[in-house]
Design a protein around this nucleic acid. Structure first.
Lengths: 214, 214
DNA sequence: ATTAGTTCTAGTCAATTTGACTATAACTAA
DNA sequence: TTAGTTATAGTCAAATTGACTAGAACTAAT
């Protein structure tokens, strides 16, 4: 499953969106579902996740991490299925390149209808993990582009945590983290004082299993 | 994989131990490996982990959680294997019941030799996760019995984090967590002032996928 | 019975971090 | 020139943390 920021239709502020694909066969024909597909013999779990993502939505995320392996007995009405779910964060420029069509569409992550299989539960778990990682860690920056303002970082936190944060105190904390680098560029074009641009210099934190083929 | 506390042979202080099973066939015949086994069609992932654990070591842990799904291409020299690894914490009384034999033995988690497959990497990852969960969360109590002293909790933290903690400050923090309940019992038998016994009242924090069969 | 040795436990105090708030800076649009 | 807006720095009290002190409560040795 993929998270990206998109402006809310009402307020215009950034909110969390995920792309879903429509089921074109039974079971759950016509319902929306998380993109996915089979694991072949010649690819690692992470490679399979990347490939399935690219094939269904055209997306190539810069942040991809294993979420959880779901293996309950009755996840699909027709057969036993074990799904090893990965989740991704994509930057706005990447997200804009996604192939949208009749059967692939973006939805607000907090306003989904009934999905196929147990996918509502999977989305809920991913949202919970995202909020947790956000609180302590440097994951928010993967939803932004290379350069960003501190106000944009705050908006990401506000969108994910769903509460407002004090701008001044938030600045102080973010600036205290060593992975945030001040540039000498400013974002022009607003109707107000132009904010300084910053850059994230940390590494994504690799998964234990994604060392490539030897 | 299973973690339990056992007294160090030298200092007598509690340290982390895990049980391993000896490989009795190729590949890696003769080497030690994590206990495990196949997933059948009629059991959930968690049920399969419990069953395999019971069959190989006789253990029935009170805390069992999914660790990670390992699916690299070359984990086994003979075939493609995907392992969905669970980890468990057992209390000392439970751990003492484990079936030890020629082919099942406990080892100190930080002093393992070369294990079969990629199992060294799996243990390392589990230790990393354990340290992380310990720092923020209430996982330590599942390594202890129902009643414990605050010094015992501190020893668990010291064993896992591998550094000494100030007894007085540690007390203050633990006592501030609402899930720790003071009893009116005291542990007798030491050569010093008897410490008060406490009890943990929190819930283990369920996995997203371990709702049982409907 | 007294004393030494041990850990348990409560407390002090300065240093650090957090949360709420104020004030000025720097831009655009009217 | 002025009003409106956000950016940014700073202040101050409250809360938390880390280092430390000291008395309490037991056992074991004298």
């Amino acid at each position: 499953m993929i998270f990206a920021l998109r402006p809310s239709e009402k307020s215009g502020r950034p909110t969390l969106w995920i792309p879903l694909v429509r089921r074109i066969r039974e079971p759950f024909k016509g319902l929306w579902a998380l993109p996915g597909g089979p694991l072949t013999h010649s690819e690692s779990l992470q490679d399979a996740a990347s490939r399935n993502l690219r094939d269904t939505t055209g997306l190539a995320p810069n942040y991809l991490e294993q979420l959880y392996a779901f293996g309950g007995l009755h996840r699909s009405p027709t057969q036993r299925v074990v799904s090893i779910v990965y989740w991704a964060l994509v930057q706005p420029t990447e997200a804009a390149l996604a192939d949208e069509s009749e059967n692939v569409r973006w939805f607000r992550a907090d306003r989904l209808g009934e999905l196929a299989f147990d996918h509502n539960a999977i989305v809920d778990y991913a949202l919970w993990r995202l909020r947790n990682k956000m609180a302590y860690g440097s994951i928010a920056y993967h939803l932004l582009g290379e350069y960003f303002t501190l106000a944009q970082v705050r908006e990401v936190y506000e969108a994910v945590l769903d509460r407002e944060l004090d701008p001044a105190n938030f600045r102080r904390q973010v600036k205290a983290t060593p992975e945030i680098e001040e540039t000498d560029q400013y974002l022009q074009g607003g109707k107000h004082r132009p904010p300084r641009l910053y850059r994230f210099t940390g590494r994504p934190g690799l998964d234990p299993d994604n060392r490539s083929t030897p």
